[in-house]
């Protein structure tokens, strides 16, 4: 299959079940809401080292937030409810409680709840107060600029992590430009985040390593500097750089739609802009239950 001269490989992205939540962080204005949201979703590229994968899902106007102030919806994904709860609590404590004027609310109704403000309240040293509004408990923690409002818990849902696109280009700049276009298109959609820096990862990995302590290592099959010696190299001589976009979504459908938007944006640039092909990462289909066939997504 070729779209606009860009070869779409007959393969699939292999993705995994995860646990996710959406939170809404509000602030006195968009700038301060985003400062808090950026910190809240910082260092959240991969569960391997960060414990959680997260990102900003969308900006919310004041009339769409619980307290009528400008807000930001953020998604966090973890491998277990325990990890998710721990990360939410830690991040609220370090990144939102600390941000001037901020407040944080649950943005999703889940089948289960993970703690959000139930521990942070103790920062109030006995001066904290709770208020139940419409059956929802909020904590009011006195801070130096007034009160920090934090919903007691946030909803947790089953979600999908690890959807991905890998694409090859003639030059690094052309790969970057294609990646930026794809991420911009994917960010238009609700229910997904691309957790890596700028939504893009350059250090795609394979399972295993020659070092016993490592579970994963550099995907030498796609490293252009090794194309002459890697026994599994997939790269033809004209490939100058390869980049990957990882996408996590609330449902398989969210991931599939985001992957389609990404492929369309990359393919739209076409072979004339140096894009050569699009493939996806998988582990032979044994590790993840969700398989996103690229050609089916584009059918």
């Amino acid at each position: 299959m070729k779209i606009n001269g860009v070869f779409i490989e007959d393969t699939y992205a292999e993705a995994f079940d995860m646990r996710a939540t959406r939170v809404i962080i509000t602030g006195p204005d968009e700038t301060w809401a985003n400062h808090a949201a950026t910190a809240f979703t910082g260092f959240a590229t991969s569960v391997i080292g960060c414990g959680v994968e997260g990102g900003i899902e969308q900006q919310l106007p004041a009339d769409e937030t619980p307290d009528g102030r400008p807000g930001v919806a953020c998604l966090l994904f973890a491998v277990s409810s325990k990890d998710l709860g721990k990360q939410v609590s830690n991040r609220v404590g370090q990144a939102v409680l600390t941000a001037p004027g901020s407040a944080i609310y649950s943005g999703i109704a889940g089948e289960r709840q993970v703690p959000m403000g139930s521990q942070i309240r103790f920062f109030g040293d006995g001066y904290q107060a709770s208020k139940v509004v419409d059956g929802v408990r909020y904590w009011r923690v006195p801070v130096m600029d007034g009160e920090f409002i934090c919903q007691e818990s946030t909803g947790m849902v089953s979600a999908v992590g690890g959807g991905n696109l890998i694409f090859t280009a003639r030059s690094h700049r052309q790969a970057l430009d294609a990646a930026a276009a794809a991420v911009a298109a994917m960010k238009q959609l609700a229910g997904v985040i691309m957790p890596f820096p700028g939504g893009v990862v350059r250090s795609g990995s394979k399972v295993g390593s020659q070092y016993k302590a490592l579970m994963a290592s550099s995907n030498d099959a796609y490293c252009p500097t090794l194309r002459g010696i890697s026994p599994k190299s997939e790269l033809t001589p004209e490939v100058g750089a390869v980049l990957e976009i990882v996408v996590n979504g609330l449902t398989p459908d969210h991931v599939a739609r985001a992957m389609r938007a990404g492929i369309e944006a990359i393919a739209e640039r076409g072979a004339d802009e140096g894009v050569l092909g699009i493939t996806a990462g998988n582990y032979g289909g044994k590790l993840g239950k969700h398989h996103f066939q690229l050609r089916e997504i584009m059918a």
Partner: peptide, 13 residues
């Protein structure tokens, strides 16, 4: 005199 965000949540309810 204070501005309390919790009042916005209550008023909305």
């Amino acid at each position: 005199e204070q501005r309390l965000s919790i009042l916005a949540l209550m008023a909305r309810a």
